[in-house]
Amino acid sequence: MTPTSDIAQSPQAPDSPFVLVASDLDRTLIYSTAALQLSMPDAEAPRLLCVEVYNSKPLSYLTETAAGLLTDLAGATVFVPTTTRTREQYHRIHLPGPAPHFAICANGGHLLVDGVSDPDWHRQVTGRLTDECASLAEVRAHLLAAADPAWVLKERVAEDLFAYLVVERDLLPEGWVKELGAWAATKGWTVSLQGRKIYAVPGPLTKSAAMREVARRTDAELTLAAGDSLLDADLLLDADLAWRPGHGELADTGWTAPHTTVLPETGVVAGEEILRRFIRAARRDRA
């Protein structure tokens, strides 16, 4: 029997929106085939639920156990999907459970309310970017000039907010991302390598700022978060309690914080464990 009823059995659960859960999606709760890391024997592998289709092909998964856990969690807390994905990319995902009232897209550039971007929030964010860091045009020009077409597969601009490259990781020169990051820091930007994607993101464009706004609107008394990449670090630091899996950019650099728990699990089973930790923390807060 899967442990999906920890919250659902509590009579207080439907009336407990004061717990806010802001979780990264890719490689934290949902996983592509390449990121699943199913290291167990085939006969012991968990059953998977596809939650995203792209170009008519299945793309992202979580385990069936995780699906049940997420359904219960989303019904008992303010669950906020929190992603660097664009709005279009986010809307391809169909998570189990009730549709989230809030979602954070474009690394905090868009705060969705019932699926629609809040224009006031977006206006506030773009104002900060104009005032506090170099322009997207300047950073994009440097990114294209510094990259080598031999290992760049695609170059994209996301929501007119940030840029990223899709690269052949095996051909990426050692130290190139670090050098790019050092240059970007002088411009008020951040660089993150996630799978085959190299992101260049303005420093003021953060998931944590959007999480704080949702917490303000919902009067949340406890904030929980999870993530695996450098672009999640501010989110984990700002939450009251946080978790990161044993894989990803943060794991590769050994990143941690006093209130962030480092999980040993990797791959899709880490997503299960993160959801269990969210549920336990939400239950303790109501005790």
Score class of each variant (00 low, 15 high):
Pro98Leu: 09
Pro98Glu: 02
Pro98Asn: 08
Pro98Ala: 12
Ala99Lys: 14
Ala99Met: 15
Ala99Asn: 04
Ala99Arg: 15
Pro100Tyr: 13
Pro100Ser: 14
His101Cys: 05
His101Asn: 01
His101Trp: 04
His101Leu: 08
His101Ser: 01
Phe102Ile: 00
Phe102Glu: 00
Ala103Met: 07
Ala103Ile: 14
Ile104Gln: 02
Cys105Gln: 09
Cys105Ile: 06
Cys105Leu: 07
Ala106Leu: 02
Ala106Pro: 00
Ala106Lys: 00
Ala106Cys: 15
Ala106Ile: 04
Asn107His: 11
Asn107Cys: 04
Gly109Ser: 11
Gly109Val: 10
His110Thr: 04
His110Ser: 09
His110Lys: 03
Leu111Phe: 10
Leu111Met: 04
Leu111Arg: 08
Leu111Gln: 05
Leu111Trp: 10
Leu112Asp: 12
Leu112Thr: 07
Leu112Ser: 15
Leu112Lys: 05
Val113Pro: 01
Val113Glu: 15
Val113Ile: 15
Val113His: 13
Asp114Gly: 05
Asp114Phe: 13
Asp114Tyr: 04
Asp114Pro: 07
Gly115Asp: 10
Gly115Met: 12
Gly115Trp: 11
Gly115Ile: 13
Val116Lys: 10
Val116Trp: 00
Val116Tyr: 05
Val116Asp: 01
Ser117Tyr: 01
Ser117Trp: 06
Ser117Ala: 15
Ser117Met: 04
Asp118Ala: 08
Asp118Leu: 04
Asp118Gly: 12
Asp118Ser: 05
Asp118Lys: 03
Pro119Ser: 03
Asp120Arg: 13
Asp120Cys: 06
His122Gly: 12
His122Glu: 15
His122Cys: 05
His122Thr: 15
Arg123Glu: 14
Arg123Trp: 00
Gln124Pro: 02
Gln124Phe: 15
Gln124Thr: 08
Gln124His: 14
Val125Arg: 01
Val125Lys: 05
Val125Gly: 00
Val125Pro: 01
Val125Thr: 09
Val125Leu: 03
Thr126Tyr: 00
Thr126Gln: 13
Thr126Cys: 12
Gly127Thr: 09
Arg128Trp: 02
Arg128Leu: 14
Arg128Val: 01
Leu129Ser: 10
Thr130Tyr: 04
Thr130Lys: 03
Thr130Ile: 08
Thr130Phe: 04
Asp131Lys: 15
Asp131Phe: 01
Asp131Asn: 06
Glu132Val: 04
Glu132Lys: 13
Cys133Ser: 06
Cys133Tyr: 02
Cys133Arg: 02
Ala134Thr: 10
Ala134Phe: 06
Ala134Lys: 03
Ala134Asp: 14
Ser135Met: 02
Ala137Glu: 15
Ala137Ile: 09
Glu138His: 11
Glu138Pro: 03
Val139Asn: 03
Val139Gly: 08
Val139Thr: 14
Ala141His: 07
Ala141Leu: 05
Ala141Thr: 15
His142Gly: 03
His142Gln: 14
His142Asn: 10
Leu143Gly: 07
Leu143Thr: 14
Leu143Pro: 04
Leu144Tyr: 08
Leu144Pro: 07
Leu144Cys: 13
Ala145Glu: 09
Ala145Cys: 04
Ala146Thr: 09
Ala146Asn: 06
Ala146Pro: 00
Ala146Glu: 10
Ala146Gly: 01
Ala146Tyr: 06
Ala147Gln: 09
Ala147Ser: 13
Asp148Gln: 02
Asp148Val: 10
Asp148His: 02
Pro149Gln: 04
Pro149Ser: 01
Pro149Trp: 09
Pro149Ala: 05
Ala150Arg: 12
Ala150His: 12
Ala150Thr: 08
Trp151Met: 07
Trp151Asn: 10
Trp151Phe: 11
